[in-house]
Design a protein around this nucleic acid. Structure first.
Length: 104
DNA sequence: CTGGTGACGTCTT
DNA sequence: GAAGACGCCACCA
């Protein structure tokens, strides 16, 4: 699995996350068969082309949180996109995984 | 070649 | 909970 194949595998998988649900970096890495490569999922998202129009905002960390500096552009944008599709994000940027995590 | 760096995760104190 | 240590590995200066 080289870098390019990995990126495309991640992007294809992120496309599968339904509206109104979230998945964690580690969860996606596990599904792809590489359980300890959560960081690489994040890297693939960072490198994803804009025209791919991925629902990247549906990917959060294992604590149910947004993995960006609070008050950063990415943080604001992600929390807003999530709320727009009905996902509750509290004031700390946390989401209840029990309620909103995607279970394929 | 080497060390630092991440849109991360798990275990131990 | 919080904080630290460690694992992981592509990428880059």
């Amino acid at each position: 699995m080289d870098g390019d194949a990995w990126n495309h595998a991640v992007w294809d998988l992120v496309d599968c996350i339904p509206k109104g649900y979230v998945a964690t970096y580690g969860q996606l890495a596990r599904i792809l068969g590489y359980p300890r490569r959560a960081r690489h999922v994040g890297r693939a998202l960072r490198l994803s082309p804009e025209e791919r129009a991925l629902p990247w905002h549906r990917v959060i960390n294992a604590r149910g949180g947004i993995s960006h500096e609070p008050q950063s552009f990415g943080y604001i944008e992600q929390s807003q996109l999530l709320r727009e599709e009905g996902i509750l994000v509290n004031d700390k940027g946390l989401i209840d995984l029990k309620r909103f995590q995607w279970r394929p």
